[in-house]
Amino acid sequence: MAAPSAPAILQFVGVTVKFEEMDVLSDLSFVAYEGESRVIFGAAGSGKTVLLKTALGLIKPDAGKVYAFGKDLTLMTERELFEVRSRMGMLFQESALFDSLTIEENVAYPLLNQKSIQCPKAEVLPRVTEALEFVELGQTLEKYPSELSGGMRRRAAIARAVVTGPPLVLYDSPTAGLDPITAHTIIALLIKERDISHTTAVIVTHRYQDGNLVANFRYNSKQGTLEPVRHGERQTARTTFMVLKEGRLVFEGDQDRLESSTDPYICKFVKQRE
């Protein structure tokens, strides 16, 4: 679990979101602290994506409060939310790259359109190149999203999400629909971003392997590879797991507690590793 002494970056207080009178999120409360990685498991339709979109202020809750960086998002207008969103990066499930723009233009988009970023024009290209090299896509600046594979699109979307250096990054099913090798590459990038930039990460996934990697591996910047966290250091890696079921939070805790849970629904996620 994260150290409660660290400042809260994202907080949900009794959040309920309804779609056509049906609860998609039901009385959800949790706090994500600075530097923490929060892995959220849940079956399809359990409200994982809605949770991330609510955290970003894209969906207004029907009840409850959402605080990001100490600010109540539920009271903000769309224009006021732009400032808060500029401090968050989001990787959408299907990448959501703008298909009429090149990869360079896609990654440059937040630098050029987020008012509070105020990136000088001369710095845009170097920062875009740096972000694309971070995800090992330095040669794709002029390409369009349709010219890239699914994994490459996901990596380009990660570059777009982190190009502004946001302190909080939300990842919506980053490995969904990818082969195991590409999925591992994507999770390695997430860990690299977390450990180099010291960001708070909220990762929605239905793969236990993703959470296991996030909790037990760290990026070795000297060797440029992932390495296991030494025995006994898991607590300091500050990874918290959450499990959602039909919009309700049914588990919140560390990996040891998750693995020792006897709840049949939770066990389904943990057993994936076997």
């Binding site: 894209l58 989001m90 703008f98 359109n113």
Partner: peptide, 8 residues
Amino acid sequence: DAMRALGT
């Protein structure tokens, strides 16, 4: 949604 998330 991405457009809104990216400040537009």
